[in-house]
Design a protein around this nucleic acid. Structure first.
Lengths: 218, 218
DNA sequence: TGCTCCAATATTGGATCCAATTATATTTTT
DNA sequence: AAAAATATAATTGGATCCAATATTGGAGCA
């Protein structure tokens, strides 16, 4: 994909994408105020597309807006993370169940290749390859709205992931679970794959919760 | 809630709410172009809040926007309805499972009262009371994001419901299923309640699918 | 007569400008 | 000196204005 310079058409989407990436990557810390004028200068536009972008991100739960006060990067809290984990488990197991009947061997091979790359590559690539792995398995479900929902949840959860530098030992566990998931998908065993996936998501979520909010309020 | 006239603060939300109601109620037919100028005149504002409202509704899947072309009410199609039904079943069973441990007898009584009213009242009130019944059972889950997601899905599904005038015989079946659901909730049997709810949502969805798109492409 | 190309028009996208509101700093009073 | 009240400044929300683009009608040609 060539870096497009639309210069017109849909600036709000471009700005929203860039801001989303920055927030998810932790570049913009939680609670940071987002000044429209500042963002407009950064993106070389007026405040108007920025306003629409902020509304989109608010709808997605990444920023909060108070009237006549401004937008801030949404804070991180344990209750929201727990909620996101449950929603992910529910949505992604559904997507996987719907995908498995349509899953081709070629697609499983693609997922396996991504997993190989993730295990061999540096830890910095873990997040991107992990997301790609999951997306590859869900895409054959052919449910665009569900996939969009999962992508949104993934963005929100990734914020927490970035804050806690991914543990090597957790990555190890994740890799094992991915292998088991691939095996179940290869056997077209939807029940087993779904259970592995649910445990995988909940394990990751609880590990994250314990690490970020050690009080034990989950 | 007194009818507030904010006159300032957040016009976009007000406009989005009104438009959402109109679209969900079928007042604005699928495919109808939504002219910014016309809407601005209707709501007594400039085009700007209208633009933001349209973006919100687009994010919610109720309108489609093409660049430099305009916004249209999103079309209805069988594939989307099928997807929505599956997503509802997944999200609502999750909410119910999470809610049941916190469910008080008082809340169950409230749901039962709503059900009594729905069975006694005219068919026009079915939609509103049905939504209130479900929301009452899910609220004790204490998961705001999940509840918001469910509400969005409900809006999208209700569009299809309104087009097909609710059948009396289907309402009858729905009432029986609601009673069974209440019984399972009263016994705090999460597994049973969840299964009843899943079947309830899928029954309604398939009945709707068969009625609206009789080709049998589900 | 039907099709293609082009101009006129309408509508959206973005920029600038003004009003409403909130946060901050200063002053006044106890 | 501390707290409250007020004035000032900064920022957002909304309105108006200009530019970019898609649609529609008409003219020209095969």
């Amino acid at each position: 994909m060539a870096l497009r310079e639309p210069k017109s058409g849909d600036q709000a989407l471009r700005i929203a994408d860039a801001l989303r990436d920055d927030i998810v990557a932790g570049h913009l810390a939680a609670g940071l105020p987002l000044r429209q004028e500042t963002l407009a200068a950064r993106f070389g536009t007026s405040r108007m597309p920025v306003r629409e972008a902020l509304r989109l991100l608010e709808q997605q739960g990444l920023v909060l807006q108070k009237p006549h006060y401004g937008a801030v990067v949404a804070p991180l809290d344990a209750l929201e993370l727990r909620e996101l984990v449950d929603m992910r488990a529910s949505a992604e197991t559904l997507a996987l169940r719907l995908a498995i009947p349509n899953l081709t061997n070629r697609q499983i091979d693609r997922a396996e290749a991504l997993q190989d790359e993730a295990e061999a590559g540096p830890i910095e690539t873990f997040g991107r390859l992990n997301a790609a792995f999951h997306a590859t398995l869900y895409k054959p479900s052919g449910r665009p709205r569900l996939l969009a929902h999962i992508a949104e949840l993934g963005d929100s959860v990734d914020r927490y992931l970035r804050v806690a530098a991914v543990h090597l030992d957790y990555a190890d566990r994740s890799h094992r679970e991915h292998r088991a998931l691939l095996a179940a998908c290869g056997a077209r065993n939807a029940d087993q794959a779904s259970e592995i996936l649910r445990a995988h998501i909940e394990n990751a979520g609880h590990a994250l919760l314990d690490h970020l909010f050690p009080k034990g309020q989950n």
